[in-house]
């Protein structure tokens, strides 16, 4: 692999349709290695669908996804995925360490059980998100922020070169938000690629290097200071009153 010149992720002409209604139209996207990218757009813009389609979790009608220049195949451990917290059944009878250990299953193959080594890796990941003292806690007893940290730790354990996170800041407390940002910073500092579905426009310039503005099709993508403009945001979010006023302020602050 020729280092940084091969992009980590290339999405080409990706179209996804649910029962013949397109939710993503011909999306192109190139994410360089080590990039920290936000995926931003209004509700129903297909942000989560883009992540899921890139992972092959929803079928694409057209288009291709390449990872480090090769067609994407699930199960090679190249992409770690953090799903939306609200989609999970948190009343499941298991504890924090067990959930995080699930991140090692991909590398374990079908029949091997996680052993001491796997649990040690899970503990290290928990340490990184400051959840070590909760490792035996049933997940039903976690706060929203703690749940999110656990899911992040599960992805960290996969030690994948690419991480995709779906709304990791949704409904979490401020310390958790800071902790997640710190982890993402460190990852991209190590040359790992981070792609985050994000709903809070105000924090985009602060948290991310680049941004994809998505509204069914890709409006624009690239470095935040080039792409995150009022015009582009207007194009992305349409004429939503209220949002626009907020946008102007946000963009001003970003300048």
């Amino acid at each position: 692999m020729d280092g940084n010149r091969t992009p980590a992720l290339e999405v080409e002409d990706l179209t996804v349709a649910y029962s013949d209604q397109p939710v993503l139209w011909d999306v192109d996207l190139t994410v360089p290695v080590g990039d920290k990218m936000a995926v931003v757009g209004p509700n129903g813009a297909g942000k989560s669908t883009l992540v899921k389609a890139a992972l092959g979790l929803v079928p694409a009608v057209a288009g291709e996804v390449r990872v480090f220049g090769r067609p994407f195949v699930r199960g090679r451990g190249e992409i770690a995925y953090v799903p939306q917290r609200a989609g999970l059944e948190w009343d499941f009878p298991t504890d924090v360490l067990d959930v995080v250990t699930m991140g090692t299953y991909g590398g374990l193959g079908w029949f091997r059980r996680p052993g001491k080594a796997e649990r040690e890796r899970a503990r290290a990941a928990l340490d990184e998100v400051a959840m070590s003292e909760f490792e035996r806690r049933p997940i039903a007893q976690l706060s929203g922020g703690q749940q999110q940290r656990v899911l992040l730790a599960r992805a960290l354990v996969q030690s994948a070169p690419i991480l995709m996170l779906d709304e990791p800041f949704q409904g979490v407390d401020a310390p958790t938000e800071r902790a997640i940002v710190a982890v993402l910073d460190r990852l991209s500092g190590e040359g790992r690629t981070v792609i985050v579905v994000h709903h809070d426009l105000q924090t985009v310039p602060e948290y991310f290097d680049s941004v994809l503005l998505l509204n069914v099709r890709a409006i624009d993508a690239g470095p935040v200071d080039e792409v995150f403009t009022e015009d582009n945001l207007r194009l992305t979010f349409g004429g939503r009153v209220g949002v626009l006023a907020q946008l102007a302020a946000t963009v001003d602050r970003a300048r």
Partner: peptide, 9 residues
């Protein structure tokens, strides 16, 4: 627990 995550693996 999380079939979608399983699929992503």
């Amino acid at each position: 627990f999380d079939g979608e995550f399983g699929a992503s693996l």
